[in-house]
Simulated scan of single mutants.
Amino acid sequence: MSTVIEQAVQARLVASDPRMETVAATLRYDREDPFAVSMAFPPRATLEGVEVSWAFARELLAEGVEGPAGVGDVRLRPYGYDRTVVEFHAPEGVAMVHVRTSELRSFLEASQHLVPSGREHQYVDWDGDLAQILEEHP
């Protein structure tokens, strides 16, 4: 059984231009990092012209499809019938995308099959992580 789930989603970039551009983004969940998900954007969708990936809590994603969630760099909230707004806050500004809520729910459901909510701690390699920290900071 694979320990990684990747799902392509259509993200509509929200900009001051009334036309919203749609880009393919990728949601990723890895059982080896059970508390986190990531959302990657292709180079053409970023200011830097390189792929950009944002990592945030899986719990934040689950909360954000139900109601407003997040106070930090990543914030989510439902929008309309079947959209979720995902905001990415950085020193350069705020990027907002609309994603179909059904796609986010499908991704969350698949991640639950790998690691059920509330059991993430059972998949963390505590000894390996501690050894890595001690190697980096002798």
Rank of each mutant, 00 (worst) to 15 (best):
V86S: 02
G72L: 03
S53M: 15
A95C: 06
L134C: 05
V23N: 09
A8T: 03
V85N: 02
D73R: 02
G49W: 04
T3P: 01
E6L: 12
E135V: 08
Q132P: 00
F56C: 06
A40W: 01
R58G: 05
G49S: 11
Q10W: 06
V71F: 10
V85M: 05
T22Q: 12
R75G: 01
S2W: 06
V37G: 03
E66S: 07
A55Y: 14
G67L: 08
F107S: 08
E109M: 10
G128V: 06
L108P: 03
P42N: 08
A95T: 12
L76D: 01
V52E: 11
I5G: 04
G67A: 15
G118H: 02
L13M: 15
E48A: 15
G128C: 06
L130P: 00
A55Q: 08
L114Y: 04
Q112V: 12
E6V: 07
V97P: 00
S111E: 07
A131T: 05
R58Y: 12
V85H: 02
S53P: 00
A8P: 00
S117W: 09
P34L: 13
R19L: 14
E92P: 00
F56S: 06
R58H: 10
R100I: 07
A57L: 02
L114F: 11
Q10V: 14
P34G: 13
E136R: 10
V74F: 01
W54C: 11
Q7Y: 09
E59W: 07
S106Q: 12
F41N: 07
P43M: 15
A11L: 11
E92R: 06
E92C: 04
F88M: 10
A36S: 15
Q132R: 12
T46L: 13
W54Q: 09
R19Y: 10
G118I: 00
V124L: 10
L47A: 15
G128E: 08
A8M: 06
E59D: 13
Q7G: 03
P34M: 13
V94C: 03
G80M: 01
P42S: 12
P43V: 15
V74H: 02
E120Q: 11
L60W: 06
V23K: 07
L76W: 02
P42F: 13
V85G: 01
I133G: 02
F35R: 10
Y29L: 15
D33P: 02
G49M: 07
V86P: 00
M39H: 09
P78S: 06
P116I: 04
R83M: 09
A90Y: 04
H121K: 09
R19N: 06
E120N: 07
V97S: 01
H137P: 00
L61F: 05
S16D: 15
Y79F: 10
G70E: 05
M20F: 11
M20Q: 14
L108T: 05
P68V: 08
V115A: 14
L13F: 10
A62L: 01
Q122A: 11
Q122I: 04
E51D: 08
D82E: 04
P42K: 09
H113N: 07
H98P: 02
A110M: 11
L134M: 06
A90S: 12
Q10N: 13
L60K: 08
E48N: 10
V99Q: 05
S111D: 06
G72C: 04
V99A: 08
V86H: 01
G49Y: 03
V124M: 03
H113I: 07
V86D: 02
